Computed example of a mutant assay.
Amino acid sequence: MRHPLLGEIEQYIERHGLSPTRFGRLAVKDPRFVYDLRAGRTPRLVTQSRVSAFLRQADS
């Protein structure tokens, strides 16, 4: 099952022209983060919070 946060991340990546690797490094210091989400990984709540904060800050 696809994680709901992945849709927001995919939109952000496309809107800002980032690679999934670059997004993962910037948001959570994990270059595999987006690839792992695409493969079905469920991030911990603290990681979800960090990504959500990153998305809010970057789009404000």
Rank of each mutant, 00 (worst) to 15 (best):
M1C: 02
R2P: 15
R2V: 15
H3R: 02
H3C: 00
H3T: 00
P4I: 07
L5P: 07
L5T: 04
L6P: 09
L6V: 04
G7N: 12
E8P: 00
E8F: 06
I9V: 11
E10T: 13
E10C: 02
Q11I: 01
Q11H: 06
Y12Q: 04
I13G: 11
E14D: 09
E14K: 12
R15K: 14
H16T: 05
H16M: 00
S19L: 13
S19N: 09
S19H: 10
S19K: 14
P20R: 00
P20Y: 02
P20L: 03
P20G: 15
P20E: 08
P20D: 08
T21K: 13
T21W: 04
T21E: 13
R22A: 15
R22S: 15
F23G: 11
G24Q: 11
R25S: 04
A27C: 08
A27K: 05
A27I: 03
A27L: 08
A27D: 05
K29C: 01
K29H: 08
D30W: 01
P31I: 03
V34C: 09
V34Q: 12
Y35N: 06
Y35D: 07
D36G: 01
D36W: 05
D36Y: 07
D36Q: 12
L37N: 08
L37R: 04
R38V: 12
R38S: 12
G40H: 06
G40E: 05
R41M: 15
R41Y: 03
R41I: 00
R41N: 06
T42R: 09
P43L: 07
R44A: 15
R44F: 05
L45A: 09
L45Y: 06
V46I: 11
T47Y: 05
T47S: 06
T47F: 06
Q48L: 02
Q48R: 06
Q48G: 08
R50P: 01
R50D: 04
R50M: 13
V51S: 03
V51N: 04
S52E: 13
S52H: 06
F54Y: 15
F54I: 02
L55T: 10
R56N: 12
R56V: 13
Q57M: 13
Q57G: 02
D59K: 03
D59S: 14
